[in-house]
Every structure is written in structure tokens, then in C-alpha cells.
Amino acid sequence: MGTILVFLAGILFLAGILFIKPRAKQDLKWKTVVNWVLYVLWYAITGIGISFIYINSSVGHVKATSTAIFLFLGLSLVIAIILARLLGFLGKTRKEINPSIKA
């Protein structure tokens, strides 16, 4: 089970890299670095959080489970939103599909 989960985690990590790669490269190098650093950070926090929540809930640590849900998944969500904004998944104005359709 553990081996399968590690394999799955690795596959998801690589899939994430392939997914953001076309958008990660920016005109300035530091922006590209920020994108990748945020991706690794987001992945690590999400992975740690899921593992932490799973183990604590299976043992029965109620407060640890609920605190971890807020802490790790909250952080994960915040970083995911920032990353999505930097990569252009969020907040870009929509391109007009047909500029001729105007009132």
C-alpha cells in the first residue's frame, strides 16, 4: 500500500510539472523560479497535510485532525490560488472570441 502511494505521489508530482511547465517560464528569471518554488512548496504542504490528516484521523486524534485540516489544507489552498494567479489560470481578462460582436 505504502509503495503504491509513494508511486502515485511521484506520478502526481510529475504530472503537475508537465501541467504547469508551459506557463511557468516567465520573461524574468526570478519569476520563473518563484513559480517552481511555489509549486514544490504547495506539493510538499499538500502531501504532508494529507498524510498527517490520514494518520491522525485513523488513530482517532480529533483535535489534531481538525487542526491539520485547517492548517495544512488552508495553506495549500492559499498557495494554490497564488500559484494559479501567477501562472495565469486565474484573474486574466478573457480574450474576446469574436470581436465583431459588439453592440
Binding site: 491522525n56 486524534h61 487542526t67
Partner: peptide, 12 residues
Amino acid sequence: MFGYGDEQIEKY
């Protein structure tokens, strides 16, 4: 913060 130690886990 995680509430370890002073909890009682009823299922055990």
C-alpha cells in the same frame, strides 16, 4: 496545538 496527551479516544 494538536491536542495530544489530554484527549480520551473512546474507540479504544
